[in-house]
Structure formats: structure tokens, C-alpha cells
């Protein structure tokens, strides 16, 4: 009996070399590697699994009829890609990012990335030097878990898990996973909690015993809201809290260029006549915003509201007193 990978390649070559529909029985009798002594139900189950494996590799297998029997044909137009033409810097970018990420266990899609680059003909160059550490330290992001969540997001399957909240309490959650984002070494899941009926953000490092709904694996369990966008869920550190307010921050002229970077496309930026930048942004935690201003470095100032300025003034006085 042929090796299963050999049988799958033979089936792909057979389908690709035939212009007409072929039946399962024709595949079986073509010598592709299906066992001779296999009963028909067992063969059909194996044949179904093989078609699924080829579809997962990118083959689009159309289904039709040969007389009264279901038959199959490769849809060449939908299966094969047109060549992708990339510029020199784009190629350098992809080679660098591939070199960095393909071997980083903190990147949950490394194997898919390598195959994707193989398909579009971008080979990591030994001369390109880029490395990545998206979380190899203690408490590293659990990549297999993130990969499973990403698949549940893609296939819209309900997942359940135990979650340890910031107070150390462990609770079981059943959620509809909407999206994932990465920040500061951790992946976060944005999902509808089915018990609370609200969209929550979950730190994946606090998720244990993840289970994806095994029922009807090819059928989505839920509809994602049409206006959902993960970019709106990824908030800045001072945008978590109950009471929103509008804050204004000024960037001095020599660091005004940083405003566009640290704002993460949040709020609005205005260039003032003296060359400084004014950033208006929604905040929900004045203390967190005041601390963020200090941590970001020189040249960033709180303009308003007064309560923010006061929070910063009192906090800095406390720091000075504490270190007197």
C-alpha cells in the first residue's frame, strides 16, 4: 500500500491531469494507492478525507455528475494562482519578516507562513538577518492555543474555556470568537460572552482548557456583527474604564512627528501654527493616561480636561515627595 502522502499527491496529479469529471470508483481503480482489499464504505471514507486534505492544501475540487454518479474535477482557474510581482523592497520585507517569524514559536502561524511564501515564490534569504521574539520568556504566548482560536474565528465556531480574571478567580466561559489582536507580547481574544451577552476582551495567557464546538465542523455556529472590526477593540492602555472623556495632548514641535505613531490611528490630530501637534482622543482612565504621558518621553503635554492636568500634577507631586 502506498504511503498516504504519496496517495494524496497521486490523487492531485490525477485530478489535475483529467479534463473531465472522474468518479470515486475511477480514482480507486486508477492505481493511485488505495488498498485493493478495502471495502467500499471504508474506501469512500478515506476518499472523503483525501479530498478534504487536498482542499486544505488549496485545490478546488468541483462536484458534478457522471451519469447518475457523483464525480469530481479540478477547477484549475480557482486552484492555481497568477504570479505575484513584487518590488525589491517588498521582497526584502517579506524575506526579513519570514526569516524572523517562521521559526518564532510566539508567532502562531509560522508553518502556514512558510507554505504561503513557498507558493508565491519568496524564499527566505540566508543573507537577510531578522529575528523575532514574540514571547519566548516565561509566560510566553501559547501559540497552539492562539492558532486554535484563530481557526475558531475563521470558521466561526463557538469555543469554551476556563479563564482566570485579574482577581485570580477562575470561571468557565462560552464565547463566540470575533477576532484576535497582539499587543506587548500577548494575544488577546475579542469575543461575545454568551452568558453576559457582551463583547469582552480576553488575555489568552489566562485561558485554559480550550474546547472548540465539535458539532458540524463545516458549519458556522454564529454570525459576526457586520460592523465588528478588531482594530476598534485594540484600545490604548488608558481607554479601558467606565467613564469616557475627551482628552487633549500636545506634542512639542520637535517630537510632533511621533504623534501619528503613538496615536495608533485613534482620535484626531491637528498641526498647530508653531509646528506642535494637538491630539484629541477619548480616554476612560485619567490616572492611566497621566502615567502614559510620563512614560512616553519628553515633549508630550496634557492640555485638558482640567481633571487630567490635576491628576498629573498631584501624581508628580506624590512622586517627588516619595523620593525626597
Amino acid at each position: 500500500m502506498a504511503d498516504a502522502a504519496e496517495r494524496l499527491v497521486n490523487l492531485a496529479l490525477f485530478l489535475a491531469s483529467r479534463r473531465s469529471f472522474v468518479t470515486a470508483e475511477e480514482c480507486r481503480s486508477a492505481g493511485l494507492g488505495y488498498p485493493d482489499d478495502q471495502d467500499t464504505p471504508t474506501f469512500l471514507r478515506m476518499f472523503e478525507r483525501d479530498k478534504d486534505a487536498l482542499r486544505a492544501a488549496g485545490l478546488v475540487i468541483g462536484v458534478g455528475r457522471d451519469e447518475e454518479v457523483e464525480a469530481y474535477r479540478l477547477d484549475a482557474a480557482a486552484t492555481f494562482a497568477r504570479p505575484v510581482t513584487l518590488g525589491a523592497e517588498e521582497l526584502a520585507t517579506l524575506r526579513a519578516v519570514a526569516a524572523a517569524l517562521a521559526g518564532d514559536p510566539g508567532f502562531p502561524f509560522g508553518a502556514d507562513l512558510t507554505l504561503a511564501l513557498g507558493k508565491i515564490g519568496v524564499r527566505p534569504d540566508a543573507g537577510t538577518v531578522a529575528v523575532s521574539d514574540l514571547g519566548l520568556d516565561a509566560g510566553a504566548p501559547p501559540s497552539p492555543l492562539v492558532a486554535s482560536l484563530a481557526e475558531a474565528v475563521r470558521l466561526r465556531k463557538i469555543v469554551a474555556f476556563d479563564y482566570t480574571n485579574s482577581a485570580g478567580e477562575i470561571k468557565h466561559h462560552s464565547v463566540e470568537p470575533y477576532g484576535l489582536f497582539f499587543r506587548d507580547g500577548w494575544w488577546y481574544l475579542s469575543a461575545l460572552d454568551r452568558d453576559l451577552a457582551e463583547v469582552r476582551t480576553y488575555h489568552t495567557g489566562r485561558i485554559r482548557d480550550l474546547e472548540t464546538n465539535p458539532a458540524r465542523p463545516r458549519t458556522p455556529d454564529f454570525e459576526r456583527p457586520g460592523d465588528f472590526d478588531i482594530r476598534n477593540e485594540e484600545r490604548l492602555p488608558f481607554q479601558y474604564g467606565q467613564d469616557p472623556f475627551d482628552a487633549e495632548l500636545r506634542f512639542a514641535p520637535d517630537v510632533a512627528w511621533r504623534a501619528a505613531r503613538v496615536s495608533h490611528d485613534r482620535g484626531s490630530l491637528t498641526t498647530l501654527p508653531d509646528g506642535s501637534a494637538l491630539w484629541r482622543v477619548e480616554a476612560r482612565n485619567a490616572t492611566a493616561l497621566a502615567g502614559w504621558i510620563v512614560a512616553q518621553g519628553p515633549g508630550i503635554y496634557a492640555v485638558g480636561p482640567d481633571s487630567l492636568v490635576e491628576t498629573l500634577r498631584v501624581g508628580l507631586a506624590r512622586v517627588a515627595d516619595l523620593h525626597a
Binding site: A12, L13, A16, S17, A56, A57, G58, L59, V60, A78, T79, F80, A81, P83, T93, L94, A96, V97, A98, A100, L101, F107, F109, G110, D112, L113, L115, A116, L117, K119, I120, G121, S132, L134, A150, E151, R154, F182
Partner: peptide
């Protein structure tokens, strides 16, 4: 004999590429 052209990217492969470009 066949299969001499690159296959299109699957959903997981496209996701990996876009994720990598996010990182960059």
C-alpha cells in the same frame, strides 16, 4: 505531468501572510 503551477493561498495561509505583514 500536472500541478506545475503554484496553488492559490488558502485562508490560513493568507491569514499568516497578512499577520506577518501586520508584524512588519
Amino acid at each position: 505531468p500536472a500541478m506545475d503551477r503554484a496553488l492559490r493561498l488558502t485562508g490560513p495561509e493568507a491569514r499568516a501572510l497578512l499577520g506577518a505583514l501586520d508584524v512588519a
